[in-house]
Design a protein around this nucleic acid. Structure first.
Length: 482
RNA sequence: GUCCCCAUCGUCUAGCCUGGUCUAGGACACCGCCCUUUCACGGCGGCGACAGGGGUUCAAAUCCCCUUGGGGACGCCA
């Protein structure tokens, strides 16, 4: 078999839609798995709705996801001449005709049909025009669109996912392929481009299933052989509707900002409507390329689950090295004004240790900032419930004495900290928890976090001791204020 | 209104093609226990589904039909 050639063809009328992202991922995976080519084509025939900014945004998002393309981007807006020659061919073959009906006239008919609750299809008014009449109208300067003359019979194609698809041609109207201003329409340019670009497999959302019949009709009218079609189930929201711009998850361009890893997004999205058929679901990108197969695609729509994507992200975070994570987290910390860029660069080793401590429990990159902030600056407030529970008057002295002992340690490490704290607890005949909780709160301002001895060891002697003393003072002041 | 598609735990899914191995498996979420200074992680366990009805068959989640439910498409948008 010849080389597989697939494409992603976004229209730049918005940011990268999650559905488009999933389609892109599937095409890319298929191309990489088969050693084929992945082509990027921008469908911007609707000039009013397209913009360069949107093109840039989509290109950036695809790059961020790691879906590098082998050819393109091609722009349909730059290929108009090509389309015109095909329009001429179509007209010459007799499989299409000029229609002079105005949008207003059609609108009236459409509304009338709706009112009568009957089906609307173009009534072929202009199909009955004689060549002379057509010429007369053209000479008179009347604008016209080009419609495909849908033949009798039925249209059939074999869908890789859904099997044999058949539609009665009487249910398809004579659709327009070229506007009155000469610009060709979607269904037509797609066919021309896919043919010209040698696309072998069209993999796209099943919301295109009805378009496919029209496109097959065009292939036949132009006497071209159609590629294979594989329609993907749609990604739906909690209302079970096709995920739309209003949905929070719809904008794939945002995922990076939200702290998601591209690998995790690719992994999660790839599992929506596709399964490797075994029980694995956390995959690296290369494992995905290896495992991907068109046969694993499902037929029914899949609901987007933000919670599960968070889980996938957490798993992928664990797969990263501390350094890789530090590279991603550092800018976020700077942005959140937790620390300066310069500061982080000079304390890189420290940053990595902090990340190592937090890695096991993070789901999004922002978690490192939120939960790691206190490693870079002393807490300004203490968790309210925690303070009520652990900042008791008797802990003023305990924190002070413990701080003194920590300060005097030969080596400020996990084992020594633990031995010191446990020894002190025994002396006072109290449980270690009664010391650990107030100490954790004093140092981090929080009631939860990594193992405390590790945490203190990373934070360092000076900061730990200073924060414990500050907390002791805070408790004393608060107690005397009452 | 017309046409098309789909249907296993709340969600993503395995099993369906090639009926029996399915008291239907995994994952997320949720609940419990263990680990533990906390929250997580991890380990163990629990909760939880074949939409309904007919048929075919010795046997149906698996094949067929109907019903119901859900979705998609019906633009001089893509």
């Amino acid at each position: 078999m010849s080389e597989i050639r697939v494409r992603i063809a976004p229209s730049p009328s918005g940011f990268l839609h999650v559905g488009t992202a999933r389609t892109a991922i599937t095409n890319w995976l298929y191309a990489r798995h088969t050693g084929g080519k992945f082509i990027l084509r921008i469908e911007d025939t609707d000039a009013e709705r397209s913009s360069d900014d949107m093109v840039q945004s989509i290109v950036d998002s695809l790059k961020w996801l790691g879906l590098e393309w082998d050819e393109g981007p091609y722009f349909q807006s730059q290929r108009n001449e090509l389309y015109q020659t095909y329009i001429e061919k179509l007209l010459a073959s007799g499989n299409a005709y000029r229609c002079f009906c105005t949008p207003e006239e059609l609108q009236v008919k459409r509304e009338a049909a709706q009112k009568n609750k009957t089906d609307y299809k173009y009534d072929r008014t202009c199909l009955n025009l004689t060549p002379d009449e057509v010429q007369q109208k053209i000479d008179a300067g009347m604008p016209s669109v080009v419609r495909v003359k849908v033949p009798e019979g039925e249209t059939v194609y074999e869908d890789v996912v859904y099997g044999r698809m058949v539609k009665q041609n009487k249910d398809i109207e004579d659709f327009v392929v070229c506007r009155k201003d000469g610009r060709p329409l979607y269904n037509f340019v797609v066919v021309v481009d896919d043919h010209e670009m040698g696309i072998t497999d069209i993999i796209r959302g099943n919301d295109h299933q009805t378009n496919t019949f029209k496109q097959v009709l065009i292939y036949e009218a132009l006497d071209l052989s159609a590629p294979r079609f594989a329609h993907l189930p749609l990604i739906i929201d909690e209302r079970k509707k096709k995920i739309s711009k209003r949905d929070k998850a719809a904008n794939a361009s945002d995922y990076g900002q939200q702290g998601f890893l591209p690998e995790a997004v690719v992994n999660y999205l790839s599992m929506l409507g596709w399964s490797p058929k075994d029980d694995r679901e956390i995959f690296s990108v290369s494992e995905l390329v290896e495992a991907f197969d068109l046969k694993g695609i499902n037929k029914s729509n899949a609901m987007f689950d933000q919670v599960k994507m968070n889980h996938f992200n957490g798993e992928h975070i664990k797969m990263k090295t501390d350094h890789e994570l530090a590279v991603m987290v550092a800018p976020l910390m700077v942005q959140a004004e937790v620390y300066t860029k310069y500061g982080l660069e000079t304390r890189w080793q420290y940053l990595m240790e902090v990340i190592g401590l937090l890695k096991g429990r993070a789901n999004v990159l922002g978690d490192f900032v939120e939960r790691g902030e206190y490693f870079f600056r002393a807490p300004t407030v203490y968790d309210e419930k925690g303070a009520a529970k652990h900042f008791l008057p008797e802990n003023v002295e305990r924190l002070q004495v413990l701080a003194d002992r920590f300060e005097a340690l030969d080596k400020f490490d996990h084992d020594n900290l633990e031995a010191t704290l446990k020894g002190f607890a025994e002396e006072n005949d109290i449980k270690t928890g009664q010391l650990i909780h107030p100490t954790r709160l004093a140092v981090s301002g929080m009631t939860k976090g990594p193992g405390m001895y590790e945490m203190l060891a990373v934070l360092g002697r000076e900061e730990t001791v200073a924060r414990m003393r500050a907390a002791a003072e805070y408790i004393r002041e608060k107690a005397s204020a009452k």
